[in-house]
């Protein structure tokens, strides 16, 4: 269970990106974060695994306050939390297999990296992960030789290497076309349902939100302005919509 309490983030330049945000995510939830560009979605996701240091507030993950964790303890926490990104964040010049293997680094001795050593078992695990996202045949290609959808599947495979209990996904489909968007979110949904992995995902298109979310929170200017479950988001009113997205907003759909 993830509990976020009074989370506030003020950047060094004084930007208040999150303001007193509190919410709870039960295990196995597919939580979608919605909000305009600049509303603080990325900041929120990165505060949860402390890629960004929160300014105030607590984040309690399975009963442990991770805002207080030391650097070493934080690494232990991070390896249980997978993360996938809008721009995939793969190492372009490395092979697909290496990119997937890096997801396992949190479990391996640090100095092995000096001689670029991965045990055979980890390589098999990486191939299995690639098979699960359907691109095992690309294992030896360079990462920059893949298409956008394939790259994001490598990103998911990398997260799977962590044996994650939770996956943070920052606009995982914003760079992809609608068909691919459904395919990628489909993978996440499968992981969510079959392995009970909690998913926190920021999304832009309302129809995707309605299709996949079991719970939704809405951010506006860093404040939590909406919270709803699956039925509530499927029947979202115009008023609620405008409260999240502003008066001029139009409902857009990604189709499919």
């Amino acid at each position: 269970m993830l509990v976020v309490e009074h989370l506030t983030k003020v950047y060094e330049d004084g930007t208040v990106a999150l303001k007193d945000v509190s919410f709870t995510v039960e295990d196995g939830e597919f939580l979608v974060i919605i909000g305009l560009s600049g509303s603080g979605k990325s900041t929120l996701l990165r505060c949860i695994n402390r890629l960004i240091e929160p300014t105030e507030g607590r984040i309690i993950w399975n009963g442990r306050d991770i805002t207080q964790a030391s650097e070493n303890e934080m690494r232990q926490v991070r390896r249980e939390i997978g993360m996938i990104f809008q721009h995939f964040n793969l190492v372009d010049r490395s092979s697909v297999l290496t990119n997937v293997l890096t997801g396992r680094l949190g479990y391996l001795p640090s100095w092995w990296s000096l001689i670029n050593y991965f045990p055979e078992a980890e390589k098999r695990r990486a191939l299995t992960a690639l098979e699960r996202v359907g691109i095992a045949d690309k294992a030896n290609n360079r990462a920059d030789a893949l298409s956008g959808g394939q790259k994001q599947r490598v990103g998911i495979a990398r997260a799977l290497m962590q044996d994650p209990k939770m996956i943070l996904a920052d606009e995982p489909v914003a760079s992809l076309d609608p068909v691919l968007a459904h395919s990628i979110l489909g993978y996440l949904e499968k992981l969510n349902q079959e392995q009970n992995i909690t998913v926190l995902c920021s999304l832009h298109y309302l129809d995707l939100v309605q299709r996949y979310a079991t719970k939704v929170i809405g951010l506006r200017d860093g404040r939590l302005v909406y919270e709803g479950n699956r039925t509530k988001i499927r029947n979202i009113t115009d008023e609620e919509f405008k409260h999240i997205y502003g008066q001029e907003a139009q409902r857009l759909s990604v189709g499919g």
């Binding site: 690494r75 993360m83 990104f85 890096t102 680094l105």
Partner: peptide
């Protein structure tokens, strides 16, 4: 990006440098 991604997996500083910076 890759540095961020590797940090998120729980990699150490050395591992991040070897696998995200060096390539």
């Amino acid at each position: 990006g890759p540095i961020e991604a590797l940090q998120a997996t729980g990699a150490t500083r050395l591992q991040t440098i070897v696998y995200a910076v060096v390539p």
